[in-house]
Write a protein that binds this DNA or RNA. Sequence first.
DNA 1: TCGCTATTTAGCAATATAGTTAGATACAAG
DNA 2: CTTGTATCTAACTATATTGCTAAATAGCGA
Lengths: 100, 100
Amino acid sequence: MFRALADPTRRQILQDLRGGELSAGEIASRFSIKGPSVSRHLSILKGAGLVRERRDANRILYTLVEDRLALCVGGFLSTVCPEQVVLRRRQSRRAAGTPT
Amino acid sequence: MFRALADPTRRQILQDLRGGELSAGEIASRFSIKGPSVSRHLSILKGAGLVRERRDANRILYTLVEDRLALCVGGFLSTVCPEQVVLRRRQSRRAAGTPT
DNA sequence: TCGCTATTTAGCAATATAGTTAGATACAAG
DNA sequence: CTTGTATCTAACTATATTGCTAAATAGCGA
């Protein structure tokens, strides 16, 4: 997870996804590196659980998984500097349909 | 900075420093890796501004720089998932002597 | 100064990372 | 079933990272 955040391109991808779902191609077009490199970055982010992918016809759309980022990184921050960071607890976005 | 946090040993060092100042040797003794490796981890953390060092006679003592961690990482989190993380603003520890 | 302890620096090997190009796969439209 | 677009996987290269051992440096005390 922290490994996934170590690369600036990946952090930028996460920020770009802040505006909503984007296709691999749209993401790639924002960087100077070639498609395959972006694709691997996306698969690393996916492996870390930071993005989710969904097929839409021809394209593959990526979405930010905010909860995961907030819980993991925020959790770490809360451990090391609990006075300065507050993790705001929040219902899971899918809580409605979740069996629990 | 995120690069510095990418290594689990370094994250553990930061957590260990949560309890206060520790010497390089004390830190090293908590890990299975040898002294020189720990020394390099410490210099990377220092390079990222996450720890500060101070000489005490024979030894070198390391301190956690919480502000830096909270501001950088918390700042990133606040950008990507602002709803879920709150950065608590806090007077600098040296504010007392600051002209302001 | 000499010897002792604590820590860092230097040099090396193994593994991981990030980029590239070329080719494979998935889907939509004829 | 063939073509065209979007994306991924494979194979390769260059660089970075992490660990190790051996040697250098810094401070303390006789």
